[in-house]
Design a binder for these strands. Structure first.
Length: 636
DNA sequence: ATAGGGTTAG
C-alpha cells in the first residue's frame, strides 16, 4: 500500500514537472503580456523581477564572442594560432588567451599546453591569465607538479601569481588526492600572506575536506570563512550538503540546507536540489524526492537539468521501475536534453535487474544507431543481467566482446562473471577467470572477495572458503560483517556449527557489529541442528541488542520451529509478525502448508496465516490447499 | 573585459 501511495505521489510530481517545464519555456514569451497589466501573485512578481534582472544581466553577458573564443575544433584552433604568430605586429596577449581558454572549454588540455609553450617560443609576452590557464591545464591532466613548475616560471618571468593561481593549484592537489599537501598549501597562503583566500579558495579546500570524509572540519571551515569576512555562497553550502548526502546523513544535509536558505538567505540552485534528490534516491525515500521536485518546480528560478534527470533515471532503474525511468527520459527529451550513454546504461541496467534480457539486449544493440558507444559500465550491466538469469554462456560471449571492442574489462566485469560462474557451479572456470584477472594486474576488491567466498560456500567448498579467509588473515578485507555472515551461513549449512559459533564469537571480538542478516543465518544454523532453545535465546538477545527485527529473521526462526516439528511458539511468532506487518516468504509458507495439510495446525490459526500471505504467493496457497480449507482462511 | 570552485554510471 505504501509503495502505491508514494508511486502515485511521484507520478503526480512528474506530471506537474512536465507542466512546469512547459510553463518555464513559455515564461519569456508570455512576459510582455504579463507586464501589460495582468495580475501577478506575489510569487510570480518576484520571479518576474528576477527574470527581468537576469535579462538585463544577460544583455551584458551576450556580448558577441571574438573569433578567438569561437573556435570549434582542434584543427581550427591550431590553424588560427599559426596565422596569429605570423602577424606583424603580434596580436595582443588577450587574443592568445581567448584562444587558449576556448581550448580548455573543449577539454583539450594537452593541446592547450602545447600552444602555451609555442607562445614562449615565438616570444608572445605571457601574462598572469595565460599562466593561470596553463596551470589549470596541468592540474586537469593530473600533472599538478608541472603546475607548480609553472608557478616557478611566474617568479622568474615577473608574472605575479594571484589568488586564482593558488586556488587552481589547490584544486589540482585535491584532484590528485594529495589532501595533506593541499592543507599545507592552504595554511601557507594565509601564514605567508601569498594571497588572501577568497570564496573560491575556501570552497576548493572545503571540497577537499569533504572528499576525505571530513564533513565536520569542512563545516568548521565554512564557519571560519564567515568569521574571516568571506561570506559562504551557494557553492560552499552545496559542496557540504552533497557530501553529507553521499554519506547518507540526510538530517544534517537538510539542517545545513535550512540554515543556508532561512538564516543566510542564500538561494539554493539546481545543483543544491540535485544533491538532495540524489541522497534521497539512494535511500529510496521517494515521497521526499517527489516533495523536493515539487518544491523545485514551484520556484520559477530553478528547473531540473540534465544531471537531475539522469539521477532520477538511474534511481528508478535500480529499483527496477523502468517504466518510470522511461517517462523521465521522455520529459528530458521534451525539454531538449539529449540522453547520453550514461542515461541508456542505466536503462540497460534496469532491464537486466528485472531479468528482461531481450529488452536489455535490444536496447544495447540499438545504442550504436543512436550514435552512442557502449562503455565498460554498459557492458557490466548487461553481463550482470545474463549472469543473474543463469545465461552464463551469453555472458561469457559478451565478456569477450569487451576486449574485441577495444575496451578493457574492469574489476566489476570480472567480479560479475565470477559470480555468474559460481552460480551455475562452474568453480573451475571461476578459478581460471580469477587467475586471468590477476594476470591483467587487477586487484580483487572487497566485492570480488565476497563473491568468491560466497561462491565457494554455495558449492560445498566451505573448507576452501575458510582457508582463503585464514590466508587473508588480519587484512581489511576480513574486517567486514558481510564476510563473516557469508562464512557463518556456509559453515551452518554444512553442519559445521562449531565453526559458525566460533566465527560469530570472533566478529564481536574484532569490534564488528552483527547485522540482521548475521543473526538470521546464525539462528537458522542453530535451528538446523535442532537447537531451538539456543536459537530462541539469540533471537531475544538480538531484539535487545538494538538490532531491529525484520521479516527475514521471523521467517527463518519460524522455519526452524516447523522443520523441527515444534509448534509451541509458532502462533506467538505469527502474531508478532502480524503486529509488525511482516509477511511470510515462499519457503516458510510451504512448510506451514505441510503442517496445515497434516492437520497439525489449529484451525484458529488459519485466519492469521491468511493475513500474512503476500499477494504474490496467493496462487501458491490456493493450489496447495484444498478449496474448503482455502475458503476458511479467507472468509473467517 | 581573456584565468579559479559545487550535481550523473556496479
Amino acid at each position: 500500500m505504501m509503495m502505491i501511495r508514494t508511486n502515485s505521489l511521484l507520478h503526480h510530481a512528474f506530471f506537474k514537472l512536465t507542466g512546469i517545464l512547459i510553463t518555464n519555456s513559455l515564461t519569456t514569451t508570455t512576459l510582455s503580456s504579463s507586464v501589460l497589466g495582468l495580475e501577478f501573485s506575489p510569487h510570480s512578481t518576484s520571479s518576474l523581477a528576477s527574470l527581468l534582472h537576469s535579462t538585463s544581466f544577460s544583455n551584458n553577458g551576450d556580448r558577441p564572442l571574438s573569433r578567438y573564443q569561437k573556435v570549434t575544433s582542434l584543427d581550427h584552433a591550431f590553424n588560427l594560432f599559426d596565422e596569429m604568430i605570423l602577424r606583424k605586429p603580434l596580436p595582443s596577449v588577450i587574443k592568445f588567451n581567448q584562444l587558449l581558454s576556448a581550448l580548455t572549454k573543449m577539454n583539450h588540455f594537452s593541446s592547450c599546453l602545447h600552444l602555451f609553450k609555442q607562445m614562449y617560443v615565438v616570444r608572445v609576452p605571457v601574462d598572469a591569465y595565460s599562466m593561470n590557464i596553463a596551470i589549470k591545464c596541468c592540474c586537469q591532466i593530473s600533472r599538478t607538479n608541472d603546475g607548480f613548475a609553472l608557478l616557478g616560471c611566474c617568479f622568474r618571468r615577473a608574472v605575479v601569481p594571484n589568488v586564482i593561481t593558488f586556488s587552481t593549484l589547490l584544486d589540482g592537489l585535491i584532484r590528485e588526492d594529495r589532501i595533506l599537501e593541499a592543507e599545507r598549501l592552504f595554511k601557507k597562503l594565509i601564514k605567508h600572506r601569498l594571497c588572501e583566500p577568497n570564496v573560491v579558495t575556501y570552497n576548493t579546500m572545503i571540497k577537499g575536506l569533504c572528499k576525505f570524509g571530513n564533513n565536520d572540519i569542512a563545516i568548521g571551515l565554512l564557519r571560519l570563512m564567515d568569521e574571516r569576512g568571506c561570506r559562504p555562497d551557494v557553492v560552499a553550502y552545496s559542496t557540504i550538503i552533497d557530501s553529507l548526502c553521499k554519506d547518507k546523513m540526510m538530517d544534517d544535509a537538510f539542517n545545513l540546507f535550512k540554515e543556508m536558505v532561512f538564516h543566510k538567505a542564500i538561494q539554493p540552485n539546481v545543483i543544491t536540489y540535485t544533491s538532495l534528490i540524489h541522497g534521497l534516491c539512494n535511500l529510496c525515500r521517494w515521497d521526499e524526492v517527489a516533495k523536493l521536485l515539487k518544491e523545485m518546480e514551484e520556484d520559477a528560478r530553478i528547473s531540473p537539468n540534465f544531471q537531475t534527470f539522469s539521477i532520477l533515471v538511474d534511481a528508478f532503474c535500480k529499483e527496477g521501475r523502468v517504466d518510470e525511468a522511461e517517462a523521465v527520459i521522455d520529459i528530458m527529451v521534451e525539454r531538449g536534453e539529449v540522453p547520453n550513454i550514461v542515461t541508456y546504461s542505466s536503462l540497460v541496467d534496469g532491464y537486466s535487474l528485472r531479468g528482461e534480457m531481450t529488452k536489455a539486449r535490444t536496447l544495447f544493440d540499438s545504442l550504436t544507431s543512436k550514435g552512442l558507444v557502449p562503455n565498460v559500465v554498459t557492458y557490466n550491466s548487461l553481463l550482470n543481467g545474463y549472469c543473474k538469469s543463469f545465461k552464463v554462456e551469453e555472458a561469457m560471449h559478451l565478456f569477450h566482446d569487451i576486449t574485441r571492442k577495444g575496451l578493457k574489462p574492469d574489476i566489476v566485469s570480472y567480479s560479475t562473471m565470477l559470480q555468474g560462474l559460481f552460480r551455475v557451479g562452474r568453480c573451475g572456470a571461476a578459478r581460471k577467470l580469477f587467475n586471468e584477472m590477476r594476470s591483467q594486474g587487477l586487484i580483487p576488491d572487497e566485492c570480488t572477495y565476497r563473491i568468491i567466498l560466497d561462491g565457494l560456500c554455495n558449492n560445498h567448498k566451505v573448507e576452501e572458503a575458510l582457508s582463503l579467509f585464514h590466508l587473508v588473515g588480519d587484512s581489511k578485507l576480513n574486517s567486514d560483517i558481510v564476510v563473516y555472515t557469508i562464512l557463518i551461513e556456509g559453515a551452518g549449512k554444512c553442519g559445521k556449527l562449531d565453526i559458525a559459533k566460533t566465527l560469530f564469537h570472533d566478529l564481536t571480538v574484532k569490534g564488528l557489529q552483527p547485522d540482521v542478516r548475521t543473526y538470521a543465518v546464525m539462528i537458522s544454523g542453530l535451528c538446523r541442528e535442532g537447537l531451538l532453545t539456543e536459537a530462541k535465546h539469540l533471537f531475544c538477545k538480538r531484539d535487545e541488542s538494538g538490532c531491529p527485527p525484520n521479516s527475514v529473521t521471523y521467517n527463518v526462526f519460524l522455519q526452524g520451529y516447523l522443520k523441527n516439528q515444534n509448534c509451541d511458539d509458532v502462533e506467538m511468532l505469527l502474531q508478532e509478525m502480524d503486529r509488525r506487518s511482516y509477511s511470510l516468504d515462499a519457503s516458510t509458507l510451504s512448510l506451514l502448508i505441510d503442517q496445515i495439510s497434516a492437520g497439525s495446525v489449529d484451525r484458529s490459526m488459519l485466519k492469521l496465516i491468511g493475513k500474512l500471505v503476500p499477494k504474490e504467493l496467493m496462487d501458491t496457497l490456493e493450489s496447495c490447499l484444498d478449496y474448503n480449507l482455502f475458503k476458511q482462511m479467507w472468509e473467517a
